[in-house]
Amino acid sequence: MQILNSSIGRKYLMGLAGAGWTLFVAGHMAGNLFIFAGPEAFNRYGHAIVSNKPLLFGTEIFLVTCLLIHVGLGLRLTLENKKAKPAKYAKKAVNAKKPSFASQTMAYHGTIILFFIIYHLITFKWGPHYDVTYGTETMRDLHRLVVEVFSEPAYVAGYVFCLVLLGIHLSHGASSVFQTIGCNHPRYTPVIKKLGWIYALVVVVGFISQPIYVFFNLRG
């Protein structure tokens, strides 16, 4: 297919797949905030999600597909681009001609984020399964697991570090996808860029607030 055989077509796909995750992380982050509403609300929220099978599987399939596309095309793109620039300059571009740090290092934080996602799933999704009963309902006690995990200073530090990388990744990616799909306009683009930054910031701060809160307030 012409689209897949061209750099622009692949870029579209990669960007849109990234946008899928961009939207997802905001939802995930918002859900995490239930931690502030206490153990029961947090667990009930988690339970509601895993009980809704169509939503759960639909989202999972969507996310895995997006991840495979994003990572697969990203890998190919990085390898091709390394080949296209066989020799580096002795000096780096500076001042008025220096591109943003985030945009130049997407492959690096991208890779770390990929491993983080896998590790994150191992810790929580496939992690220890505690039970808790509210009234007649028994459900997974995710709250206990979260408190356990985030009582570990090293884990909190690693988590915060990876989340900052995600923020950097998003600070470029969230607005860059608009350019990729062809939305660039002198009136809107500066606004889109700012919103991209704000989006990244809100997502990161929201995510980080959970381990910080747990570590300082709920640690056993």
């Binding site: 750099s7 296209a84 001609k97 220096k98």
Partner: peptide
């Protein structure tokens, strides 16, 4: 063998004729 665009914007900054990324969006 030109590489793939990753929207760094380095091109626009280096361009002596101020060609804008808007053109790339149009091309996409």
């Amino acid at each position: 063998g030109f590489g793939n665009c990753t929207n760094t914007g380095a091109c626009e900054m280096a361009c002596p004729k101020d060609i804008s990324l808007e053109n790339i969006a149009l091309m996409n």
